[in-house]
């Protein structure tokens, strides 16, 4: 022990906690060297210092601080015991444990991939169903549009027919089915002045799309194409068609009306099966 008055003079300052930096370290080193004089002085001064600090007006300490410090201590204790435990236990080489960890990792990646694939598949199916729905919607709209067009045409046709029936003069002839179409019949009503007429048929069978019915007028022994039409499924018995032809003249000038079944594009001369015929002026 080497006493030094320099440190004796610092005992009071150190006791107040007012010594800092290298002075503090040197002082502590001196006290640790068991200098009895300074040690005794310090013990005395720390008691006084404690008294002074304790005599000061107190501040309110938040109760949470106690919990915080004790919790930190508990945490440090757990960590410390965990480190000690690790240090005490022999280290076992992970010969068996490593592969399952890898396998676990691989399984995780695999599951992740499967999940991603399922998500992509689900998303694709969702998009596909959306596209299908859009197609269906578009198709529905087209159907509705065509129905509207059809109804508009029909309405226009009906108006034309009403106008025709109101007009004067009118010619009317009755149509009879051929042998193969004996239950079929019809009428042709026309105004020879306006050159507008209407064809009404009954019980004409529906025919495939590649075929059409064609109405001919025989005049001066020559067939004249008047109208090409087909019979739809939704019409049950009767069908009415508007005829606009400059050839629709006086009844006595027309020799015969015939309806044949032709190919889709229609024929130049009657060449298909005869369905209905009526002779006006044989």
């Amino acid at each position: 022990m080497n006493h030094d008055d320099k440190y004796l003079r610092l005992c009071g300052v150190y006791a107040l906690g007012a010594l800092d930096g290298s002075d503090q370290k040197n002082f502590e080193a001196h006290i640790q060297s068991r200098c009895e004089i300074c040690g005794t002085e310090l013990a005395k001064f720390t008691e006084i210092s404690d008294v002074l600090y304790k005599s000061l007006p107190q501040f309110h300490v938040q109760p949470e601080l106690r919990e915080r410090i004790l919790f930190s201590a508990r945490l440090a204790k757990v960590v410390k015991s965990s480190i000690q435990k690790t240090g005490e236990e022999p280290i076992v080489l992970p010969t068996v444990e490593t592969p399952p960890q890898k396998a676990k990792s691989q399984w995780f990646v695999l599951i992740l991939l499967v999940a991603v694939l399922i998500m992509i598949l689900g998303f694709t199916m969702y998009i596909k169903s959306l596209l299908n729905k859009m197609d269906e919607q578009r198709e529905f709209q087209n159907t509705q549009q065509s129905l509207l067009t059809k109804y508009a045409d029909k309405l226009e046709q009906q108006n034309a027919i009403v106008q025709l029936l109101k007009s004067y003069p009118l010619e009317i002839i009755k149509l009879d089915g051929s042998l193969s179409y004996s239950n079929c019949s019809g009428k042709i009503i026309w105004n020879p002045v306006n050159k507008v007429g209407v064809l009404q048929t009954s019980n004409l069978p529906t025919i495939p799309d590649e075929n059409v019915y064609q109405l001919w007028m025989i005049k001066d022994e020559k067939p004249i194409d008047i109208l090409t039409f087909s019979v739809s499924d939704d019409s049950t018995d009767e069908n009415i068609f508007l005829i606009l032809s400059k050839e629709l003249g006086e009844k006595n000038q027309i020799e015969e009306f015939i309806i044949t079944r032709e190919t889709r594009k229609g024929a130049i001369i009657p060449s298909g099966e005869l369905v209905i015929s009526v002779k006006l002026n044989p």
């Binding site: 006791a15 107040l16 906690g17 007012a18 503090q24 502590e28 005794t40 404690d50």
Partner: peptide
């Protein structure tokens, strides 16, 4: 370190410094 001081004094000095 026991410098001949109490834990209380040690805490005071330590806190202040």
């Amino acid at each position: 370190q026991s410098f001949g001081i109490s834990i209380g004094s040690w805490l005071v000095i330590n806190t202040r410094s």
